[in-house]
Design a protein around this nucleic acid. Structure first.
Length: 663
RNA sequence: GCUGCUGUAGCUCAGAGGUAGAGCACUCCCUUGGUAAGGGAGAGGUCGAGAGUUCAAUUCUCUCCAGCAGCACCA
């Protein structure tokens, strides 16, 4: 502690402290250390907070000066200053454009503009050029804290209404900070670099322009958002652009077409036409899940697709979910001979909905016959085909669709069975994910939201049960306070794919509400009727989306047991054709998906075509193999081939074709 | 749903106010070739749908449909 009020003590990362006048800025601190540090400094950490070099320090503090060698602050400043530089470039080219906000995001930044004419790809080039000019000007960055009214008046005079609105949204306790990059001005909480010349000239790129709502609100003005990416070096930018290319190669829409797995067409937007090879993957996965669920104590059921609105009114979906439902109006008085569907007897018209979820139907199954506490927990599973009217802009390949099938199940149980069922499910899911090639997953625990039903005691109990369950199976989780459903808490499961992307697939939700609405009950040991809890749970989510994830994860090179085409037996000369047929038949008899290629093509051609087609194993046979009863084995991605006896490869491939749960 | 862009042969794409082209794939012929494209020939398209402008529209304009990117949505 300094004795003198006007002096403060600043402690450096090495533990040494020095005394400075109160109000000293990190820039002055850096200068007091060395000329080179003064030049290299970009910002500081003051008591851990990211601090602009120009901001005064008024009290004793821990301080560290940041340079470009400090990754996190360097990237933040580069990206943040580029956001300002881009906005400045845009206003230098088109002075009438209004600026709004421009935050740093993963890998870069964006800035939202209000401009009548759309930005074109050519405009992006112009903006980049102007940005380079601005960087080369090496304009100093300066900052001041302004009085709120002065700032509002300033932006009104500048005709920047969005800035005025932003200031009005800043809490009264926070300062209004203004920044200048040369003459160009922006409202910003900072920090920023010393001058524009500190931004590396060639390690960033403008990527795209797209619409975005002002303040993320779809009822408000649509702005134009320009995205950029930025790194500390040209090499890192290149690596990033390369990674984007790699991700594009995995696109399931592209691979689905190339591998002839499925297609979609405009008469059925958001719905999948599965081709034989794609459907092979689908059925393999479904058969696998069916076996796992049977082993896990689930009973499989199947329920109707077209269900009268009365049930949806009871379940509450009619009120809350109607705009997402496909409705089917049927004139029940039709004679069955009139082809014109538009001719309807309104009085006789019945409104149905395609089911968007399976839960209400599952309660109907539960409700048949009296249930005893001895029947619980009752685990009802369905590969439930659902239809949801998703907004057109949300559709994405087979990942976000309007018609899909969930690996859905509902567990009817008592309150004190929740914890066990939850633990059991986490183990089930971990097992499935590991066998499908996703050993790593995260759990997010979403707790009671503001708007909810049920008593606090009940929430306490159920949340406690979930938490105990996670601990019982020895897993970590992250808390998402307030993110639960209105009726109960939930766990969401996020798996990580081969290139580090995370996907939410599994879910586990506790629901006392729907059994109540739909009148589910069981006879407890005390002889009275009680309400069961309903646990909604899914592991893969939907088959469509999960297969999309599998395709992208494996870049189309699915594990052998899931690969739609497992083996191609290719003749090198037509003299081997009969032997090819024999090998194919022997493989098929072992349950291997094998096909013959005896076309009039060279072996090079065949190898290339089936490699491109991601067939995991090519068996080439020519005169030698026919003679020796062997095959030449070539694995996808390997250049080396090996000659093996027919019997040996039959046994090996049959073993490989066995799904992981049956090994 | 919103903003912008796109829609030409199975796929990837070129093209132009006067009713269309390439490569690959496909079919046939030659070739029997030893591990990522052998050679030749042929066939294939109401240029997403509808309307308008024009002597003439696939090309220009409008509406619709679908796709792509982002936003919003995903109780």
């Amino acid at each position: 502690m300094s004795l003198d009020q006007s002096q403060i003590s600043l402690t450096f990362p090495d533990g040494n402290a020095r005394s400075y006048p109160a109000g000293t800025t990190p820039a002055e601190v850096a200068a007091s250390i060395s000329k080179s540090l003064e030049k290299k400094a970009i910002s500081a950490q003051v008591n851990g907070a990211h601090w602009d070099l120009q901001w005064p320090i008024e009290a004793d503090a821990r301080i560290a000066i940041n340079t470009m060698a400090d990754d996190a602050p360097a990237l933040e400043l580069i990206r943040h200053d580029l956001a300002h530089i881009m906005a400045r470039a845009v206003q230098e080219i088109w002075p009438e454009v209004n600026v709004t906000i421009g935050p740093v995001i993963e890998n870069g930044w964006y800035y939202d503009f209000d401009r009548a004419a759309p930005f074109t790809p050519e405009d992006l080039g112009l903006i980049e050029k102007k940005m380079r000019e601005i960087i080369n000007r090496r304009d100093p960055v300066t900052t001041e804290v302004w009085d709120r009214d002065r700032a509002v008046a300033f932006y009104k005079a500048q005709n920047e209404p969005y800035k005025v609105e932003l200031i009005e949204a800043i809490p009264g306790t926070e300062p209004i900070r203004m920044y200048w990059h040369g003459h160009w001005q922006d409202l910003c909480r900072g920090p920023h670099l010393q001058h524009t010349g500190q931004v590396p000239g060639d390690s960033w790129k403008l990527m795209s322009v797209a619409g975005a709502y002002w303040r993320g609100d779809s009822s408000r003005q649509m702005l134009q958002r320009i995205y950029g990416v930025a790194f500390q070096s040209k090499e890192k930018l290149k690596a990033h652009l390369h990674m984007l290319e790699e991700a594009a190669k995995r696109d399931h829409r592209k691979l689905g077409r190339e591998m002839n797995l499925f297609h979609m067409q405009e008469e059925a937007p958001g719905q999948v036409f599965w081709h034989p090879d794609g459907w092979t993957i689908y059925t393999q996965l479904q058969d696998y899940m069916r076996r796992k669920q049977r082993a896990g104590g689930y009973r499989e059921i199947n329920t109707p697709q077209v269900v009268d609105r009365k049930l949806w009114e009871k379940s509450g979906h009619w009120d809350k979910y109607q705009h997402h439902m496909f409705l089917v109006e049927v004139d029940e008085s039709r004679d069955g001979e009139t082809d014109d569907a538009a001719v309807k007897d309104k009085a006789q018209t019945r409104i149905n909905a395609l089911k968007p979820m399976n839960c209400p139907c599952h309660v109907q199954v539960f409700n048949q016959g009296l249930k005893s506490y001895r029947d619980l927990p009752l685990r009802l599973a369905e590969f439930g085909s659902c239809a949801r009217f998703e907004p057109s802009g949300a559709l994405h390949g087979i990942m976000r669709v309007r018609g899909f099938t969930q690996d859905d199940a509902h567990i009817f149980c008592t309150e004190d069975q929740i914890q066990d069922e939850c633990a059991r499910f986490i183990d089930f899911l971990a097992d499935v994910y590991a066998e499908l090639g996703f050993p790593e997953f995260e759990i997010k625990f979403a707790t009671r939201p503001e708007k909810r039903v049920g008593t606090d005691e009940s929430w306490d109990y159920v949340e406690g049960a979930l938490e105990n369950a996670i601990k019982a199976v020895g897993r970590d989780y992250t808390l998402e306070p307030g993110d639960g459903a209105f009726y109960g808490p939930k766990l969401d499961f996020y798996l990580t794919d081969a290139i580090g992307r995370v996907w939410q697939c599994g879910t586990f939700q506790v629901d006392p509400n729907l059994p109540e609405r739909l009148g589910a009950s069981y006879i407890a040991a005390d002889g009275d009727k009680h309400r069961p809890y309903m646990l909604h749970r899914a592991c893969l989510g939907s088959f469509e989306r999960f297969i999309g994830i599998l395709i992208e994860n494996w870049e189309g090179k699915l594990p052998f047991w899931l690969a739609p085409r497992q083996v191609v037996v290719a003749a090198i000369t037509s003299e081997a054709d009969a032997y090819v047929a024999e090998v194919v038949a022997a493989l098929q008899a072992q349950g291997v998906r094998a096909e013959a290629d005896i076309r009039n093509e060279k072996i090079n051609y065949k190898v290339r075509e089936h490699s491109v087609g991601k067939v995991p194993v090519i068996l080439a046979v020519g005169a030698r193999e026919v003679e020796d009863r062997t095959v030449s084995v070539r694995r996808l991605g390997e250049k080396q081939t090996s000659v093996q006896p027919l019997d040996a490869i039959l046994a090996a491939l049959a073993a490989e074709a066995t799904p992981p749960d049956l090994r």
